[in-house]
Nucleic acid binder design. Structure first.
Lengths: 211, 211
DNA sequence: AGTTGTGAATCTGTTCACAGCC
DNA sequence: GGCTGTGAACAGATTCACAACT
C-alpha cells in the first residue's frame, strides 16, 4: 500500500496533525480512538481521517477504532521520525534563534547540528552548544556531518545564493522562510513559509467582512 | 466581479506572491509585465495568473500585459493593504519578538499596536516602543484601540484560552502559531501555522527517497 | 451496535485552448 | 503578432454511503 502513487502533501500535513492529537490522547490515558474523535479534535471529517490513514495500511479495528500506541508508532515511522533527523540553520537572526529553541522541534526527533551566518561577530560563537560557521564552510561540514534538513531564515538579498549552496551540498529537505524560489532536483523537497503573505491573506478576509 | 462567490484562500495567497514580484519588477524600472513572466518568476502557469487576476476585474491590456503600477494599486486595495492594519501580539517569547521585528510585516501597512504576555517581568516594559500588558487587560485595550489582527505565539497550555479571549474582544483576524484550534464565529478568519508539522512533512518527503 | 476501509459521487482547483482585443 | 479573459475540459481532493468486520 505504502508505495502506490505519490502521496499528497495535504495528506502528510494532516498525518502530523493526527499524530499531535494522538500524543495528547495518550497523555490523557486513552488507549483507543475513533476516526470521529480525531476528526472533531481538528475540524476534519471522519471520512478524511480514515482515508488518510488507509493509504498507509490497515491501522484500525472495525467497530473499535484505532489503537493509539500502534497508530503513534505507525505515524512516526511513516513520517520518518523514528530516526534522528539532523537539521541545520542558515541565518541566525531573531527568527533563526526562535526556531533553534522551538520546543515543538525538539519534541520530535529533530536535532540541530550546524548553524551558518555571515556575521563575523557570530562566527565561532556557540548557540545552544552549536558553533556558528561561515556558509563558505558548508561543503566541508556537509561532507563530514550528515545534514538532512536546512532551515533558511537569511535576508532575501542572500537567499537565492544560500538555497543554491544548500542544494549543492545535497541537503535534500529545505524549510524556506525567504521570498526566494529555486528549481529543485529530483528527490529534494522544499517547504516555503511566507509570513508576510499569511498576514496579507488575513488582511484580505477581514477587509471583506467590513462592508 | 468582486462580489460573486467566496474567493479561494489559494487565490489570495497567490495574489500576495504576485504583489511581491510586482514590487520587485517596479524596482527594476519595468512598467508592463505579462502573465507569462509573473508565472515564471513564481513557478505557476500563466493561465493560473490570468484566472486569479480576472476574478477581481480586468487589469490587463490584451496584447500588452499588465501595467505594473495599476496592478500593484489594485492588489493592495484587494488585500486591504491600502489602510493601516493594527496588529497585536500575544506571547512575547523568542518567536513573538522575531515577528515584532519582521521586516516583511513593516514593509506593508501592518503596525503593531499592542503586546500581551503573562510574564510579570515583561509587563509594563516597552518593546519596539509598545508597552506590554497582561492579557486580562485585553477587553479594555481592545475597546479603546481598534485591533484588526492578533498574532498568537503563547505556549500551547495557554493557547485555547488566549484564542477565546481574542474572539471575545472581537479581533477578527488571527495568526495562530499554537496547536490549539477553536470554532470561529462568522466574519472571523484564522490562519494556522504549524512549524513542527512543516518539518515533519519535510521529513516524510526526504525519507521516501532514501530507498 | 459500532466503526473501519473504500469505491463512487461530488466538489474544488487547475489547465487548456481559443475568441476577442490591442 | 501577442497577450488577455474565460468557458470547457481535466485533475485532484473530499465526502458519501455502505459492505465487511468485531
Amino acid at each position: 500500500m505504502e508505495n502506490s502513487n505519490p502521496i499528497a502533501v495535504f495528506t502528510i500535513k494532516r498525518l502530523s496533525i493526527y499524530l499531535r492529537s494522538l500524543l495528547q490522547l495518550k497523555n490523557e490515558g486513552k488507549h483507543y480512538v475513533s476516526s470521529i474523535e480525531i476528526a472533531e479534535l481538528n475540524g476534519f471529517t471522519s471520512a478524511q481521517v480514515r482515508k488518510d490513514l488507509s493509504v498507509f495500511g490497515n491501522f484500525g479495528v472495525k467497530g473499535k477504532g484505532y489503537n493509539i500506541d500502534n497508530l503513534i508508532t505507525g505515524l512516526n515511522r511513516i513520517l520518518g521520525l523514528n530516526k534522528k533527523i539532523s537539521v541545520s540553520l542558515f541565518g541566525l537572526g531573531r527568527l533563526g534563534e526562535a526556531l533553534l529553541e522551538n520546543k515543538g522541534f525538539q519534541r520530535q526527533g529533530f536535532e540541530f547540528v550546524a548553524i551558518f551566518d555571515i556575521d563575523r561577530t557570530k562566527i565561532g560563537r556557540k548557540f545552544n552548544n552549536i558553533v556558528v560557521h561561515h556558509p563558505d564552510e558548508l561543503p566541508q561540514i556537509a561532507s563530514k556531518l550528515k545534514i538532512d534538513i536546512a532551515i533558511v531564515t537569511v535576508p532575501n538579498e542572500n537567499a537565492k545564493k544560500t538555497l543554491q549552496s544548500i542544494v549543492e551540498a545535497r541537503i535534500r529537505g529545505i524549510f524556506n522562510f525567504t521570498d526566494a524560489r529555486i528549481q529543485l532536483p529530483e528527490g529534494f523537497y522544499m517547504q516555503n513559509v511566507n509570513l508576510a503573505g499569511e498576514l496579507e491573506t488575513i488582511s484580505y478576509f477581514i477587509s471583506q467582512k467590513n462592508k
